[in-house]
Design a protein around this nucleic acid. Structure first.
Lengths: 125, 125
DNA sequence: CTTACATTTGGTTATTTAGCCAAATGAGCA
DNA sequence: TGCTCATTTGGCTAAATAACCAAATGTAAG
């Protein structure tokens, strides 16, 4: 692998890493619907204000979101809508994992139970 | 956000995190072409054998790749081809970033130079 | 120009991750 | 059975990440 190729994989990984956090993933979905100021996101997130701000900064540096200052507020919006396409695939991965887990446990995965099994193993009634 | 939703975002983030490493990203693309044993991937990667094995283990635990033991070797293959769709979008993000950087630097981004600018800032001739 | 508000930045700490080495496992072969 | 090869696991250290708090910045309003 050339240095050039290596740098490309590193750059791609950096973008994915920016998305690879539950709070940031949630934010991306919110920002896909419409722009939000930091304060709005803060209210829904249950974390320090500075934490929320830093998450947005990570997304911005990765080039995933855009920001515009208006008055006292900073308005963030999703810059690259195609990242939303990831969600469907990821859900498919999780569902598939759930089925594997269920099969291993001797359960019949039906509908939502499967996802629950993957997300909260041990909580299946 | 309910506990349930929170757990879902955490699960999704876990999958993305598994992909968010240059070596693992490279491996995923190789495994998309055809199955490979650990030794084949090792030869191309320039890292310890155990490091390669651990990367594959991360991908397996995320449910992204599958493994089958045949004889002495372990053969890994891509289990969820849809993750390949991510690549196009990520490249679009990088290209877009490059253009922003170039505009900021007063350059005209033409073709490949744009990507180079993003990947190796400061190396533009 | 002082205050209040929205957000970012810097500092600190705890946790997670990546890498290497050495040792353990497990399958096939002598 | 004992050897060898392919791979995984455990232990360790260095580096990266996430969270909080406190302090700094920048903007608008009084």
């Amino acid at each position: 692998m050339t240095d050039r190729e290596k740098a490309q994989y590193e750059a791609k990984a950096r973008v994915l890493k920016a998305l690879a956090h539950p709070t940031r993933l949630w934010m991306v979905e919110r920002l896909a619907e419409r722009e939000h100021c930091v304060c709005e996101l803060f209210e829904a997130v249950d974390a320090d204000f500075s934490t929320v701000s830093k998450h947005l900064s990570v997304l911005r540096q990765a080039g995933i979101v855009d920001v515009e200052k208006r008055g006292k507020q900073m308005f963030y919006r999703l810059k690259v809508p195609c990242v939303l396409q990831f969600m469907g695939c990821i859900e498919a991965v999780l569902l598939d994992n759930a089925e594997v887990q269920c099969r291993a446990a001797g359960l019949t995965p039906v509908g939502d139970i499967a996802l629950q099994a993957r997300l909260n193993p041990g909580e299946i009634s």
